[in-house]
């Protein structure tokens, strides 16, 4: 779906995108992650054709980003970009639909459908400058899927939204994900963990990693054990002696929450040994999970990169 090859974009002396190369297939939502200034918005602007790359190429569905044939393939929710001032939402959405080849009647119907889906049908006769931040965001989200584009780029889709609306937005993305490939840039990693299956991490304009969420979680070599009763020091020592275990700590000094850091190729064997020890000591295990949270995996990657 997206092919980036040796993409470079500079603003003066600052390289926002630095020799970025990656491929993304059509399918489940993709998360784009990176610290502030990593180049996420610039990358979206290059993919959408708002900016021209200094060198390199970016193709969407096999079509160059600056080609006129790309029209209608991409939908975008840009970060903080306003609609045309003083023109009713309805007129603007109708125009977007007609630009994508629909007749006047089809455009009216599509506008009605998407705005109903996103709960903004009652805002159609308002002017954009009279909408609140959250209302503008929802209208902008609705416009991004007009005409059923193949790829939709969402830049911070839920920032500034209240939790209920944010949850609605996540559900809407998931409900459309079978037909549209979403690429979502967000600092809300828990949200990306929920929605996305693939994560692209960039930092200082370079690719850090492009991989699955599960793989990224798995890179964190830790076992988390939650017990019904506190473990004693002897148990901690026994866990530390298991082959491949690096260290054993307790989260928040709570002896019911044990974190086992390991360095071995067979975490399943390790899990079995840990469970065996707990069972022998009569300590009921409430939860055992392998790997960390997505946020921790990404933070470590970015820190390692620095």
């Amino acid at each position: 779906m997206i092919e980036c090859r040796n993409l470079v974009k500079s603003y003066g002396r600052v390289r926002a995108i630095n020799d970025l190369t990656f491929d993304v297939d059509a399918g489940p939502p993709i998360g784009l992650v990176g610290p502030n200034g990593a180049g996420k918005t610039t990358l979206f602007s290059l993919i959408s054709g708002f900016l021209t790359a200094d060198s390199g190429t970016v193709r969407v569905d096999g079509i160059d980003a600056d080609s006129s044939r790309r029209n209608g393939i991409i939908g975008i929710l840009p970060q903080d970009a306003p609609f045309l001032k003083g023109i009713r939402v309805r007129d603007q959405l109708d125009l977007f639909a007609r630009l994508q080849g629909m007749s006047a009647r089809e455009a009216i119907e599509v506008t009605r459908t998407v705005t109903t889906d996103f709960g903004v049908a009652d805002l159609l006769d308002r002017k954009p400058e009279h909408l609140s931040h959250g209302q503008r965001k929802r209208v902008a989200l609705a416009q991004s899927i007009i005409g059923q584009p193949k790829l939709v780029l969402l830049d911070e889709p839920t920032s500034g939204l209240d939790p209920v609306v944010a949850d609605d937005v996540r559900r809407l993305i998931q409900s459309r994900a079978h037909a549209i490939t979403f690429m979502i840039s967000s600092h809300n990693l828990a949200e990306l963990e929920d929605i996305c299956e693939t994560i692209i991490v960039i930092n200082e304009g370079r690719l850090v990693v492009a991989t699955s969420v599960a793989e990224l979680r798995g890179r964190d070599q830790r076992l988390r054990v939650r017990l019904a009763n506190p473990a004693d020091d002897a148990m901690i020592a026994r866990l530390g002696r298991i082959e491949g275990v690096v260290d054993v700590t307790c989260a928040n000094n709570d002896l019911k929450q044990i974190i086992i850091r390991y360095d071995c190729m067979d975490p399943d064997r390790l899990q079995m040994e840990v469970l065996g020890l707990m069972q022998a000591a009569g300590l009921p295990v409430v939860e055992l999970s392998q790997g960390g949270k997505l946020a921790e995996g990404i933070l470590r990657l970015v820190r390692d990169e620095k």
Binding site: S48, G49, F50, S68, R70, N71, G72, I74, G75, I76, P78, D80, A81, P82, F83, L84, K85, Q92, L95, F96, L99, Q100, A140, Q143, G147, P149
Partner: peptide, 19 residues
């Protein structure tokens, strides 16, 4: 000028060309 300055063309430019 005004629309370009406000970035309002971003919604249009995925559906039409700059030309």
């Amino acid at each position: 000028a005004a629309d370009a300055g406000r970035n309002s063309f971003r919604f249009l430019l995925t559906r039409c060309t700059r030309s």
